[in-house]
């Protein structure tokens, strides 16, 4: 094969490092570089393996140290890559436990059926609040007016001589049963109510 012959020529000329050179961390010789020509001869002369020759030229030392640094960086990157790949593979192959759910499969919080919903509690009716305000005002009224707070709370109407401030009238709660004997005002329907009924006629 032609390319094998070319490669053997390059190795023979010292332009391509042999596997043993690469294992020793020796620099790749190039044309014009000091020491390129006697690379093979130095190895043949019995230089200790893994040890830089003491009489090596300065250019050889710098190249060797830079190549060692490159190897260490490459090894670190490779190790990191292996660690990452191992982590990915191990996490992908790990069976999903019943306790760990992805976010979109997280179980809903348990609902207590006996607990009342937060918005279900009715607001107190206005008339009740008004009555409470009236009761509070009556209770805080000074007793020098000639009437005790307990008497005022009995529902007796305050007399004009006994109280200077008129009580706040509270709206009566609508009676669920129409009282049969209550006086009926004649005109209480407003125009909008009339229109609502008229729409059905």
């Amino acid at each position: 094969m032609a390319w094998i012959g070319i490669a053997q020529d390059l190795v023979a000329d010292g332009l391509v490092p042999t596997p043993s050179d690469a294992a020793l961390g020796l620099p790749t010789p190039s044309v014009g570089q000091p020491g390129a020509a006697n690379q093979t001869s130095r190895l043949a002369a019995g230089s200790p393996v893994g040890k830089m020759p003491t009489s090596a030229p300065r250019g050889d030392t710098d190249a060797a140290s830079s190549q060692g640094l490159g190897r260490r960086i490459a090894l670190a990157l490779g190790a990191g890559f292996v660690v990452i790949v191992a982590g990915v593979l191990s996490s992908g192959s790990k069976p999903r436990s019943s306790a760990s759910f992805p976010v979109h499969e997280a179980p809903l919080p348990a609902v207590n059926p006996t607990a009342a919903p937060p918005l279900a509690s009715p607001r107190p009716a206005a008339p009740v609040r008004d009555r409470a305000v009236v009761r509070h005002r009556k209770a805080s009224r000074p007793s020098s007016l000639g009437k005790s707070a307990a008497e005022a709370d009995d529902g007796a109407a305050p007399t004009a001589a006994g109280s200077s401030a008129a009580p706040v009238p509270s709206e009566p709660a609508p009676s669920p049963t129409p009282a049969p004997s209550q006086p009926v005002p004649v005109k209480t329907l407003d125009l909008q109510q009339i229109r609502d009924f008229e729409r059905n006629l």
């Binding site: 609508p174 009676s175 669920p176 129409p178 209550q182 009926v184 005002p185 209480t188 329907l189 109510q193």
Partner: peptide, 11 residues
């Protein structure tokens, strides 16, 4: 069943 009415003209 009677229900509350806001208007005294309506039952």
């Amino acid at each position: 069943t009677p229900k509350p009415s806001k208007n005294s003209s309506i039952d």
